[in-house]
């Protein structure tokens, strides 16, 4: 499974200058790639192009050589967007309701809720959950769409630092176990360095790719390692 963006250009309607110009990006199966860059460099737009929500003016986006279409990837936007009238379980099951061929039973969903510590909240409404819980449910919803590629748009951006650390560890454990391919957006350079195999630095007119020199599996102690601190400083300079 390879996600490939080839010479992708996108211009917003009524804009003359493209926000993404001639972008090339290759993400291999099981890779964790973070997109970083200042606001307005098109990070979220890239994810929307990969989901098929936006259509590029030029270039092609493929998964295993096949042009992408809506429903091909799991997508978690910046806001958790849990449907407020649906219980936690019903929110998780919405992917299976939409894609009839998706083999997801309530029992599977229940097992996952158990694993992420939310089994007692199966029948709770989103407004009865904390920020971290909501993000976990939103992540589970994206993951249980069964797609190999997961696009996560600043999923932990609004969380406090303690919850954020917990969520990072949790995400890494699930990613390693399920061998998903993740494209992750963050403004947090430490987060990008800690989680990713590779970091794609988006600038106004260029793209830089940086390999993360940390071994797998990652653990919280590495946050203070000289490699990670050095990488973060390097990113600060380059961004």
């Amino acid at each position: 499974m390879t996600l490939l963006l080839k010479n992708v250009t996108y211009t917003f309607p009524k804009e003359s200058k493209p926000i993404i110009s001639d972008l090339n990006l290759k993400v291999e199966k099981g890779e964790f790639v973070s997109l970083i860059g200042k606001s307005g460099t098109g990070k979220s737009t890239i994810l929307k192009l990969i989901t098929g929500l936006l259509k590029q003016a030029h270039g092609e986006i493929t998964i295993n050589g096949q042009p992408i279409s809506l429903g091909d990837v799991g997508y978690m936007p910046q806001k958790d967007l849990l449907l407020p009238w649906r219980t936690v379980m019903d929110n998780i099951m919405i992917g299976a309701e939409i894609q009839k061929d998706l083999q997801l039973t309530k029992e599977d969903a229940r097992n996952w809720l158990k694993r992420i510590g939310l089994i007692d909240y199966e029948h709770a409404l989103p407004n009865q959950l904390s920020g971290g819980m909501r993000q976990r449910v939103a992540f589970l919803r994206a993951m249980l769409t069964g797609k190999e590629v997961l696009l996560l748009d600043e999923p932990f951006g609004a969380l406090d630092s303690i919850t954020k650390k917990e969520m990072q560890a949790w995400l890494l454990s699930i990613w390693q176990e399920l061998d998903k391919t993740i494209v992750f957006i963050t403004h947090d350079l430490e987060e990008a360095s800690y989680l990713s195999d590779r970091i794609v630095l988006l600038k106004q007119n260029s793209v830089e790719e940086i390999e993360v020199p940390l071994p797998r599996p990652r653990h919280a102690d590495m946050l203070h390692s000289s490699e990670l601190v050095g990488l973060r400083r390097e990113l600060e300079k380059r961004i």
Binding site: L70, P77, K79, I94, I98
Partner: peptide, 12 residues
């Protein structure tokens, strides 16, 4: 619109 995009991204 965000909710609509979310469901569209699932192929709804």
């Amino acid at each position: 619109k965000d909710y609509i995009e979310l469901l569209r991204s699932m192929g709804a």
